[in-house]
Nucleic acid binder design. Structure first.
Lengths: 145, 145
DNA sequence: AGAAAAAAAGATATAAAACTCTTTTATTAT
DNA sequence: ATAATAAAAGAGTTTTATATCTTTTTTTCT
């Protein structure tokens, strides 16, 4: 697994919120949990965190909920991964060595270099807003039963 | 992280054993733990498992220890990952959807396809025996302090 | 002002991963 | 045969990730 469960949910939730936001809808936790098939209380915690860090917007009270403004629609997968899982996927040694580097490489360092570049590039260029469009067109899905 | 800690240790230990085996040395758990900088009792469990599944060879008693025969030197990283972490890295949806597929893809499915192919190819073609040669030549390292 | 809705915050519970310790079994050398 | 060595096996602990439950705060609507 590349991501923690928390991170998977965070990405899926962000895409869900983005999709609704493009129609100017705010969505409540309960709806998000259903929409991405995640535990309600768990995703609540995650949304709280995303909100505190400014990746999503929120309004309390009746007719409140979560949404994403123009700026936040430009958030990338990479941004979310960095927030939730930290930079380890992008920087840590694939074999878990603390000091692995170009000059003192682990046995997989050079072999893995290109793949890592691939991963970083992919997630850096994937914008939540853009991704959500495909979901809106029913080309891709956030939950599958 | 691509691998569990257990899997990282398993790979490093296998490479270490392979390296020593090419000089026809058997190695004890204690030496392996030192050689790859891992918790001794933890790696013991992992070696037990690798041995039971036939990926490494072992002999009990004085002058005993672990080694790899010709056949086992051909073991790939992929083989070890499959044994320890299972196939999830190679097959599971990157966003954690249970039913993600070509016909019902998650929002990252197509984007991630190539990267995944990369990962699989890399680990399928990386043989422990071959990797251990670079370590022997001090070109790459199993622990770095 | 009061009731209801919804997120924020805090505390707790459960499960899985990582790690440790102890006992047993097999092998070898004296 | 006995003692020593080393892996195998079993059981236990600690830590981290995942998930749940409860209370508080903010906002809106009547």
């Amino acid at each position: 697994m590349l991501f923690s469960k928390t991170c998977e949910y965070a990405i899926r939730a962000s895409i869900y919120i983005a999709q609704q936001s493009r129609e100017d809808k705010k969505v409540a936790i309960k709806e998000i949990a259903k929409g991405i098939d995640s535990p309600e209380h768990f995703i609540a915690k995650i949304l709280q965190n995303l909100s505190k860090k400014g990746f999503i917007n929120s309004v309390k009270g009746p007719n409140g909920g979560f949404y994403m403004d123009k700026k936040n629609l430009k958030t990338t997968i990479s941004d979310i991964v960095l927030l939730i899982d930290g930079e380890s996927l992008f920087t840590n040694c694939v074999l878990g060595l603390k000091q692995c580097s170009e000059s003192k490489p682990c046995p997989l360092h050079h072999e893995y270099k290109n793949t890592r570049k691939n991963i970083i590039e992919l997630f850096r260029t994937s914008k939540i807003g853009q991704i959500s469009e495909q979901v809106d067109l029913n080309e891709t899905f956030l939950k599958i039963k």
